[in-house]
Design a protein around this nucleic acid. Sequence first.
DNA 1: AGTTTGACGGAGA
DNA 2: TTCTCCGCCAAAC
Length: 86
Amino acid sequence: MAEPDWREQLYTLVAMIPPGTTTSYGALAQQISGASARSVARAMSQLPEGTRLPWHRVIRADGRLPDHPGRDEQAQRLRAEGVFIR
DNA sequence: AGTTTGACGGAGA
DNA sequence: TTCTCCGCCAAAC
């Protein structure tokens, strides 16, 4: 059944990302009907601080970290999971 | 209704 | 490798 909000699907997908792995905004968008890389990025920027979602596992399609104020913390968390970052 | 603004993506220089 | 340009799309003005 179709979710009323594609954001719900997004949160679900992000929550399913296995530790030590990463995915991109575009990859997520392709799995969600009605979403686009741009929309996903915007949705992620609006996540509350206390979220349980592993948001740090979502990076850019080119393997780089996204341009946002929390990229420092993101890099730290990813390294803690053994993820190699260019 | 038109413009600006992004945690983007891909192609071209 | 880094930068620019363009397409994309929802939200804020």
